[in-house]
């Protein structure tokens, strides 16, 4: 993640410098930068996420700004959409099933995201080319060894699927707050990779674990994610509420009994004394 950020930083800085050369005298305008990332989720939706940042003291997200999304077709730029950035400076274009998006003969899609600038902020743009990849995740058991298999394929210009070879696949266990990386393997010539299932990881109470396989921030394919669930983890004991104890809602029983015995002993005597008073009153 950090590496890609750095990489994008350099690229966009370079573009910003070259783009801004002609406007050098208007130095008062702030420098803007566009960062573009491509995501394909486990539900196969594809999104292009563009982030617009502006240089104040450091770079900060720039919200409420219009970003223009283009697809490069041969030499023409086809406008896909105009989207305003949110407060985090992000604008998201849905790529899946967009008929305006076309691939070049090599199977690449080239996007251009442009910020046209304003009186206060300089214009910025960024170009990104990706290939449409896909991950399939499956589980299988041979004898007693449990494994995960992932096959990576890409869809070319002619909608033919071909395997992606020698690409890094990262394997994660889905946690509450993060993904825990337990394996990293390259695919073979058939675009297939197998890793051992992390059987010592605790799952939920029935042992269900969510496994995530990813091609992560790849220069050609962006980020592609596949997900699968299976009950091969170690089941955990369901957490039950402790009923009685010093730190619980109800007191330990010996405490309750002691208290009742003590209080009732004292109050019985009080009542007896009150009874004596009544007897005094009656014995006049």
């Amino acid at each position: 993640m950090k590496n890609v950020m750095k990489y994008m930083l350099i690229i966009s800085l370079a573009t910003a410098i070259t783009a801004g050369k002609g406007l050098a005298q208007k130095a008062v305008r702030k420098t803007a930068r566009v960062q573009v990332e491509y995501f394909k989720g486990p539900d196969k939706t594809e999104n292009l996420v563009a982030t617009l940042i502006v240089k104040e003291k450091r770079y900060v997200p720039f919200g409420e700004a219009m970003l223009y999304f283009y697809c490069l077709n041969d030499t023409a730029r086809i406008l896909l959409d105009k989207i305003k950035t949110n407060d985090a400076g992000k604008a998201v274009l849905t790529v899946s099933n967009n008929p305006k998006i076309t691939k070049d003969p090599e199977g690449k899609i080239t996007f251009i995201v442009e910020y046209k600038g304003s009186s206060a902020v300089k214009a910025a743009q960024r170009k990104m080319a990706i290939r449409q990849g896909d991950l399939e995740l499956s589980f299988f058991q041979k004898d007693s060894t449990k494994s995960i298999e992932v096959s990576a394929t890409e869809t070319g210009a002619d909608n033919q699927r071909t395997p992606i070879a020698k690409v890094n696949i990262l394997f994660y266990v889905q946690g509450t707050f993060s993904l825990y990386n337990f394996a990293k393997e390259k695919t073979d010539e058939n675009g297939i990779v197998q890793v051992a299932f992390p059987v010592d990881m605790p799952g939920d109470t029935t042992g269900v674990l969510t496994i995530v396989a990813k091609i992560e921030e790849n220069r050609t394919y962006g980020t592609i994610e596949a997900k699968g669930e299976i009950n091969w983890g170690k089941p955990i004991q369901p957490v039950k509420e402790k009923k009685r104890g010093l730190g619980d809602t109800d007191a330990p029983l010996w405490m309750v009994y002691t208290l009742i015995v003590l209080l009732s002993a004292v109050w019985f005597h009080y009542l007896y004394v009150v009874y004596m008073m009544i007897k005094i009153k009656l014995a006049r």
Partner: peptide, 18 residues
């Protein structure tokens, strides 16, 4: 680092460990 002891994963946002 923060996490769920039951799932045995803790993270500080960028790194995750058992």
């Amino acid at each position: 680092f923060f996490g769920d002891k039951n799932e045995d994963i803790v993270t500080n946002g960028t790194e995750s460990f058992r």
